[in-house]
Design a protein around this nucleic acid. Structure first.
Lengths: 234, 234
DNA sequence: CGAATCACGAGAACTTGATTATCGTCCGTC
DNA sequence: GACGGACGATAATCAAGTTCTCGTGATTCG
């Protein structure tokens, strides 16, 4: 890759303004084609974990399912972890959008109510699907599983992926503080992580304590909210 | 050449004389011999993760280090996960004992103080080793990593392994409730998991939020305690 | 037009790590 | 002194990720 102009080839991702229009044509086709291919891999992976209670998938499976080749896969992704990261980012975006929507519709007037809705709804989304009802395509626990892998293996990347969710939470938190419902002496940065983490990985809590599973998702969520807001203290 | 006598070569580093003496000499029944072998595998694994910042080890390494054979390994362990489970159980026991000791010495008069000590000290133990000081053999973050693997892959076994820690926490919690410092309307079962989990996996919190690392272990621990006890509410 | 290039599919090959199988030896027992 | 079990050494197998090689159709460029 040494014989082309430095204008188009060097950037694959961000850098929106540039002089896109000028080279829109040639670049556009190449880019959309690439994006399309990437998306096909992502979709295939999503499909794989949606079906069955697949806890994991292999690169091979993704490749086959996507109708593309291993070669292409490694051309577009640096490795499986990049695919995971892609899935995860997308999942966080989706989840956050859905949360925002639910909060706008169900969240009450008060900022605390909106925060409450965030906690309860996010809790539910991270819960493993209860036996009985077929959910929509909500691969939430899968997301959680990946979150773990990514958080341990690639903390920096995952924190980038978490940004939308963290931002939403932070907005709600700030609003609730301004409204006087939440302590104003909090270090928001320092509090956001633990709160999101305790919700997201709530599944583990039950596993740690063994027989602590007897709450419905709704009750568990409300109980957690209670503790988060009021604390353990008398 | 790896055919030394098993008495001296197995333990190189620190001085967990453990049960070697007993075994080496008098009792040599089949059971103690077996336990000795199992223990050598465990020690070897512990050793491996103590040295370097090894995040993981292979079965081969453990086998070599322990001076035993692959065959024996699979004779005594159903697989790597059983070794992990063994390590984890032992680690929880050790950690719990150490916690109990610290609480007895540093914990104050009041039950809340003892609970406070639990939270703060356990927090520190689960923290990745700060650069600067050479710690004793406290493979805590490694423990945490394993906890994750086990919690996701073998929830039942891990909850069994957690029993000592959970019991200790529950005792302290109950005492604090009786003393009137902690809400009496709590479902202890339902609260223990989240609290332990948020302490143990605190590392993730920083990774989720990105730039939330600027607290010392002590400050982070106190901040978390504050939130746990007082909650977010105004 | 023809050659170079490229993107891509098909699939083999390589790598690491777990797990299993084979073989031979040592050691205590009968 | 033979037998059987425990054990070490080592090879074989299996799975999954990753890389490599070849071939082909399309595009480009001289």
């Amino acid at each position: 890759m040494s014989k082309e102009e430095p204008d188009t080839a060097a950037n694959g991702a961000d850098a929106p303004s540039w002089r896109e229009q000028a080279v829109a044509r040639s670049l556009d086709s190449a880019r959309t084609r690439a994006e399309n291919r990437v998306q096909r891999f992502l979709d295939a992976a999503l499909e794989l974990m949606a079906e069955g209670d697949r806890k994991d998938f292999t690169v091979q499976e993704v490749v086959e399912r996507s109708g593309q080749s291993l070669r292409s896969f490694y051309q577009y992704f640096g490795g499986k972890h990049e695919l995971l990261l892609g899935l995860f980012e997308e999942s966080v975006r989706t989840t956050t959008a859905q949360l925002a929507k639910r909060i706008d519709s169900k969240g009450g007037e008060e900022p605390v109510d909106r925060l409450h809705t965030f906690v309860v709804e996010y809790y539910k989304m991270c819960q493993p699907p209860r036996k009985g009802k077929g959910r929509e395509a909500l691969p939430s626990p899968i997301l959680v599983r990946f979150a773990l892998q990514l958080l341990t293996a690639h903390p920096a990347e995952s924190s980038r992926a978490f940004v939308p969710l963290v931002s939403l939470f932070d907005e709600l938190l700030l609003a609730a503080i301004d409204a006087g419902a939440i302590r104003s002496d909090l270090n928001r940065q320092a509090v956001t992580g633990p709160v999101l983490q305790v919700i997201m990985f709530n599944t583990f809590s039950s596993a740690i304590v063994d027989g602590a599973d007897d709450l419905s998702a709704q009750d568990g969520a409300e109980a957690l909210w209670d503790v988060v807001v009021n604390g353990l203290g008398a």
